[in-house]
Every structure is written in structure tokens, then in C-alpha cells.
Design a binder for these strands. Structure first.
Lengths: 233, 233
DNA sequence: GCGCGTGTTTGTCAAAGCGCAAACTCGCCT
DNA sequence: AGGCGAGTTTGCGCTTTGACAAACACGCGC
């Protein structure tokens, strides 16, 4: 017995509609592990043996091009599945997963995927919904990169981060994990220099406050106007 | 009886592993329709009532931004599923589908999705594999847009088109449907002007021959070098 | 408390590629 | 046959943003 308790995963979107017994069954082959900040949970190109669920923390999913350019494909939040190469019929991971902060994640051997899907159709449906949603998001990102200027893209990226991982503070909403200018650049397809310049400009205008690995959005509405490329009404 | 014959779909990747009886069952609720060149099979934002399979022709999947910018998300080839909003748990189409040439497509009512998936697990698996593959492609596109220059992006796009829909001709490989500079621009996030200039330059260098709504790649290897941003060895 | 490294700011410069504009050229329709 | 319109080519100026460089600052670890 691993000691994993069903309350770990009860209430998660992914397992919605599953009975207590079902949750127990789900956990039978799950293994929990701690991943210190900065460590790789899995690595691009590596053979996929497991799929994962993030219990706590934040994870960066990073793709590296043959020439060494890095792109941050997404951030994984608590409660989300990740590394589900198996669901896409892949045998290797198309990206790496790096812990943005200390994380705890569950891992299941890939063979459990088919198993759980058969036993609990609701689980399969939820999981594929997740993939569908990610396809949508990614296509939206392509759209954004095609049609928007760097300033709008960065504004949109910040707003998305704030929505996904925002934490209210005294003077605004702070992104809940350490994030560098370089990270933001890799999310938006630009350079850390440009990000730095824009954040500085926004700080002047009172839209954000930012520091070392930290961004606080102080005027979300104002930033929204920037994202839509309009001046404040 | 609709007269749809199982040979229409036998041999397609999507239905691999299905028996003849299964194929017959699949077709029971399918309706075949012809879509003249330029017509919309479905429209962005519209409630999704059906999902589709392209029997013949080529389809452009187009997303339009609120500001009216268009982006071509992908081209659908013969034998591929499209408009599978239902598989992603969506109730409306996130993009429009336009016939690039005269097309014939099968349509199933959405309720058949769950049905077929239950009856024929192999069908479900193939379908979700398709979505997974598209997510991969789309993420690769984001990567490309983040790290490559316009010239490389266009070269890559052409090579992809040639691979998906190339037809050998006397002097090279021709893209098998009418495609404008504007279309290529909308695939790569640039302008028709830039595309035109580059195609002209490439024509000088003997890499392509192009004309009105037509592109022939005459030196795929040379174009590959352009795509990788290297001069010919 | 100090030093060092990582992350950030800021400046200058260059150029990719976009916007605008105008001319041109096929094909097709009448 | 001729005209029309969609699609294409090309020129030019200019903005955005990347590249390079250098200085700076914060915070951690010793």
C-alpha cells in the first residue's frame, strides 16, 4: 500500500464523475514524487514511460529546437494532467517538463492509460477534452503570433498567467511563481530585452510592478486595453 | 438506404482495424455532400451539429480574429476527419472550413461520435491520435514562428504543402490545389507582399516556379536548405 | 558582511519586413 | 473581342524589434 489517499485527487476536474472506489482504483498504480524547483520531471525526446498529474506547484513545458532555441509551450497548474504522450500515441516526450517551484506530482505507468480509460469512460472523456482544449489554446497562440505585435502578445501572455496562476496581493495580482524576462520572452517569441523594455514602460504607466523573477499586475484593465491595442478610453 | 458503399472509407487510416460490418455500421448515419470550390462547409462560431470526413478535394481551415485577420490553421487532405469539435467537447466550431477545390465530404451527426467510439474502440483511438498529432503540429508551428525568420517559415510551409498535397509534374512537384500568395501569407503570419517577393527571388534561383494560384517546387532539396537557413553546401 | 552569479536595465545600431501605393497581367465572363 | 477583376509584382519609406554591448542590482551563500 502506498498510502495515497483518494482525497488527493477527489474534486479534480480530471476525475470528475468517478466514485470513491474508482478513485481508489485510479491510485493503485500511481506513485507520488517530489520534484525540487528547477529539476526536470521528464526530458524532451526521452521515451515516455509514465503520464503525470500535478498535485502542487507549477511546471513549465519547454520545447527546444535543434538549433537550441527554447520555447515555453505552456505552464501546468495544480490538478492538471501533463506528459500524456501516451494519449497522443507518442512513444517519446515532445517537450521537457521543468518544475518552476518545488512540485509534487503523481506518475502512472503508461499501460494504466488504456486501463483507466476502459474502466472509467468519464476519465477518458475528461482527458481528451483536456487535449482538445490545449489544441484550441495553441491555435489561438498561433493566431496571436500571426496578427499581433510584440506588445500585445506580452500583455496577453501576462493576463493569461494572471488568470491561471494569479494571487491577490496588497497592490495587485501577482504571478504565483518565479518568472524571468527570459521566460516571458520564450512564451511570446521575442527577446528578454524587449520584454524588459516593455515591462519598464508599463511600470511607468502604473500597469504593473515587477522585479527579479516577479511580476505583479496592478491594473489588469489597463493591461487589457494594451492587449487589445487601444489607449485607455 | 443511402447507397453509400463501404469501399468509400475502407482503407482509410481513420477506420483501420474495422471489419466490413463495422464499416457498414459507420456509414448508416453518414450523409455525403458535394461542396463546390470556395463554399464553406461550416463556419466559425456556428453550433457544431456534425463532424466530417473529406472523401475528395482539399479544405482550408481558417480562423478569423475579432479584428478580421485571417489565419489558415491547416489544410485537410482526402481521408482526414475535420470539424470534430465534438471530440474536443466543444459546442461550436472554432474555425471555418472552406473548400479549396470542389470537394466531397461525409457528415455524421455529433451524437454518432460517442456511439461509434463505444462500438468501435479502434475508431476512437485513431481519432484521438489525429487530434494529438494536430496538437504536435500546431506546437511545432508556434516554435517555428518564435524562432525562424519569414523566409524559413515560408520555405517550411511550402515543403509541408508539397509533402501533403504534392503532385509530380514534368518540372517538379506541384501543390495540388489553387493557392494564392495571400493564402501562403496567412499560413505563415506574414503579408502577401513578402511572400510574392520571396517566391520571385526563389524563382530566380531556380527553386520554384510559380504563377497565378499555383506553386511548383522544382528543387525541393534547395528549398530545404533555405528552410534550414543555410546556403547550398 | 561581502562577493559572485543570475537576472535586469538601458543604450546604440542595423535590418527585416510591413504599410502604402501603383502598375501590371492573366483568365474569365459577357 | 474586349473589359473587368482578382491576383501578382515591385518600389520606397519607415517602424518595430532584434542584435550586441555594457553596466547595474538584487539576493543567496559563504
Amino acid at each position: 500500500m502506498t498510502g495515497l489517499d483518494r482525497t488527493l485527487i477527489a474534486g479534480l476536474e480530471t476525475f470528475r464523475g468517478l466514485s470513491e472506489q474508482a478513485l481508489d482504483r485510479v491510485l493503485v498504480h500511481a506513485r507520488s514524487a517530489r520534484h525540487p524547483k528547477g529539476s526536470e520531471i521528464f526530458s524532451q525526446g526521452e521515451t515516455a514511460e509514465n503520464f503525470y498529474l500535478l498535485l502542487s506547484g507549477h511546471i513549465r513545458v519547454v520545447r527546444t529546437s535543434p538549433e537550441g532555441h527554447q520555447v515555453i509551450a505552456r505552464y501546468i497548474n495544480e490538478g492538471e494532467l501533463f506528459g500524456i504522450a501516451v494519449a497522443m500515441g507518442r512513444t517519446s516526450f515532445p517537450a521537457s517538463a521543468v518544475a518552476a517551484v518545488d512540485c509534487v506530482a503523481l506518475a502512472w505507468p503508461n499501460r494504466e492509460w488504456a486501463e483507466l480509460q476502459t474502466l472509467f469512460p468519464a476519465f477518458g472523456a475528461n482527458a481528451y477534452q483536456t487535449i482538445g482544449a490545449r489544441l484550441q489554446e495553441t491555435q489561438a497562440q498561433v493566431m496571436e503570433m500571426s496578427t499581433e505585435q510584440v506588445e500585445q502578445r506580452i500583455a496577453h501572455a501576462l493576463l493569461r498567467l494572471v488568470k491561471q496562476a494569479g494571487r491577490k496581493t496588497a497592490d495587485g495580482i501577482e504571478i504565483d511563481f518565479p518568472i524571468t524576462r527570459q521566460d516571458i520572452a520564450e512564451m511570446t517569441g521575442t527577446t528578454l530585452h524587449t520584454v524588459s523594455r516593455l515591462l519598464s514602460a508599463w511600470e511607468q504607466r502604473g500597469l504593473v510592478r515587477s522585479g527579479r523573477q516577479k511580476v505583479v499586475v496592478t491594473d489588469a484593465h489597463g493591461l487589457m486595453l494594451v492587449a487589445e491595442h487601444r489607449r485607455r478610453d
